[in-house]
């Protein structure tokens, strides 16, 4: 099996706030990230697709096709947007690196038809990233999927 990785970048704003918690609790848990005016990052997204190369083309999938999928599904949705307000896939969720990576996984998983989505790695900064993969052994690390109240 071969893994193929494509990288794209997008810039977006967000802030962390849970309306179910008091203003004080929000400040305590989220710190500077709770600033209601928001702040932004240059996100770097690495998407890995795994599969066997097609003998005729020598490719797991056409990278041009993957580039187009990433542009359409992720960059067009998230680039220069406010993740709290403008991205329906994140509605009701706190747009942490973990939740944004999981949302991107769900946007991509059925769009990739050649090979299999293997990993979504989202860098919020060069020193912080979240990895989203299929949970093969079911070790209880499954993210919560439901919207919170």
């Amino acid at each position: 099996m071969i893994r193929v990785t494509r990288k794209v970048e997008f810039s977006a704003a967000h802030y962390y706030h849970n309306p179910a918690l008091s203003a004080e609790e929000n400040r305590r848990i989220f710190g500077k990230c709770n600033n209601p005016h928001g702040h932004g990052h240059n996100y770097v997204l690495e998407v890995t697709v795994a599969g066997e190369p097609d003998p005729a083309t020598g490719m797991v999938l056409d990278l041009k096709e993957l580039k187009d999928i990433l542009q359409r599904e992720v960059v067009d949705r998230m680039d220069h947007r406010h993740l709290n307000y403008e991205v329906p896939e994140l509605a009701g969720k706190i747009p942490t690196c973990e939740n944004v990576a999981a949302a991107i996984w769900h946007l991509l998983v059925h769009k990739i038809t050649k090979g299999k989505l293997d990993r979504v790695r989202l860098y919020e900064s060069p020193d912080l990233f979240a990895d989203c993969t299929s949970d093969h052994n079911g070790d209880g690390a499954t993210p919560e999927a439901g919207a919170r109240g």
Binding site: W105, F129, A130, S134, G138, T142
Partner: peptide
């Protein structure tokens, strides 16, 4: 969301 996903978070220090 029926997929079972695994998430991890990585932080770099120096």
């Amino acid at each position: 969301m029926s997929d079972s996903l695994k998430l991890s978070l990585t932080r770099r220090y120096r």
